[in-house]
Amino acid sequence: MGTMPVLSRRTFIFGSAAVAGGVVFGSYGQAQDNPASPGTTNPLAVDLGPDSVAFNPWVEISPEKITLIAQHADIGQGIGSIQPVMIAEELDLELDQFEIRFAGPSPAYFNTGFAHEIAPFMAADQSLEAEKGRAAALEWLRQSGLQMTGGSSAIPDTYEKLRAAGAVARETLKAAAARRSGAAVADIRTEAGHVILPNGTRIPYIALSAEAAKIPPVTDVKLRDPSQWRLIGKSMERLDIRAKVTGEIVFGIDRKMDGMVYAAVKLNPNKGQPIRSYDASKAQSMPGVQ
């Protein structure tokens, strides 16, 4: 019991992803100010603008806007909408109050949810052996910094992490507002992108970014009970549906970079066979071909 390898659809997808190069292997970073993802540095801290704050690798607030980072790629499964919703649930944001940015590569975004998939135990197996196997898998994921989307692991990975990221941001904004106003944190609340002081004054989060950057993130947070949720578990419009319906959304093929050229691949039509020679003269005679 417990040692039987399970070749599920999910492990199969993981295998495909690895072969297709859809996996980013990061390196193990130094333990620094990244409480929600211990043992890694916060990649947002590198290019942070003036008077801006990055409470953790998922929430960035500047004097102009709130940006939520989606670490899992969205190719239609909807996770690009669900990730910010989990943050917004705890951070008390409305769905039109933030921008979404997909994460660059960083060990901070290692996939904790994948431990259940790569450890060769049935999901229902609660034995000590299974738990130890999963713990070992998690440690391997952490050390390798495996940042990947797939295997239905995005929600298991982010379900607590992103809510915590939102709660950390919320509590730190409240602490900054308390410092500014002299009110007690316990008397301050948040709603729809604003901190609300006991006297009813509403301060937008973006107006607190500079002050919030000066204090260490409040990491001692408690996640809300599901009975309090406004967003999670409710039907919602995909956040990218309008851009997809108007054609504005930018896919990889739509992106243009300075000096970019296009390449076309010609393969040997026989599987696995090498190239002996090729004649590019016809292609090279076409206008624009370099």
Binding site: D74, I75, G76, Q77, G78, E237, R238, D240, I241, R242, A243, K244, V245, T246, I249, F251
Partner: peptide, 20 residues
Amino acid sequence: LHPVQEAWIEHQVAQCGYCQ
């Protein structure tokens, strides 16, 4: 928005959206 686009939003048709 064209009525077809409106309907596409109301019924959340697009997933990845590439073909839509």
